[in-house]
Amino acid sequence: MLAWLSRSVLPVATIVAAIIVIWYAAAIPMNSMRTYMMAPDDAEISFSELVSDTWSQKKPQLPLPHQIVREVKKQATFSWIWKEKRRGYKRSLIYHTWVTLSSTLLGFGLGLVLGVSLSLAIVYSRVMDLSVMPWVITSQTIPIIAIAPMIIVIMAPMGLTGLMPKGVISMYLSYFPIVIGMTKGLRSSDPILEDQMKTWSATAFQTFLLLRLPSALPYLFPAMKISLAAALVGAVVAELPSGARAGLGARLLVFSYRSETIPMWANLVSAAILAGLLVVSFGMLERALNRRLGFRTAGEVSS
């Protein structure tokens, strides 16, 4: 127990503590501008006054951890769900996180389907291999922020507004790691095993199902983790040009116009927590699946 504590908790805790110390220290000079502006010309400001002011402003340059935590606590409310007129939801972080999460998951799902289909085409067709891969790579050199409004404009006349275009924009980022990982994975099967399947005169489909697909999984899972994080970025960016009112990205934009830095940071923190939860829950799924498939997991030794 003690060993576990010192091995896994201690290093993390040390880093977090260091960051917090630096954060509070940096807030003093960064927020002091406003302190001096607000004070009367001839006022003498002592150091303790300076500290207490810079750590408690309403619109600080750099909000402090305790302010952000207080804001998150205040806004992370479910009460809009059962309030009669549903008025509260506009400020609820839970609501906006949910909106962003839904387009993240849609974008991730679409990206997974598109990515896997493309890599199948690339691996099984020489023509596709030569023609598709360069486009896939080119697609990622165009900034998402330039593509996003075009996707919205193109999809609107088809009656696709709201969730769908946001999902598509998110997919634009999330399919890429999948294509790369899955293509590499499908090509990673052991040549001896390929020969082995051939000697049993297995069909192409049997070889795919029994050999190529399982060989690809160790490449697909990490790709899916990256893709999940990319889908979240895409979902947040998708909310910026769409005129959306809901979602973490939309709220971020609104608060930045009003220079409401504390809610901005609260939104950022929510996005980070969401990303962390997504990746961690996916990691658990991966481990369970690996065990189910009998893949050797790290830490196990042969007996």
Binding site: D195, Q196, P214
Partner: peptide
């Protein structure tokens, strides 16, 4: 195609999963 032979390779060639 008729599975007329069995082949033991120089390396074991077992599916690890």
């Amino acid at each position: 195609m008729q599975r007329a032979y069995g082949y033991v390779f120089q390396q074991p060639g077992l599916l690890p999963w």
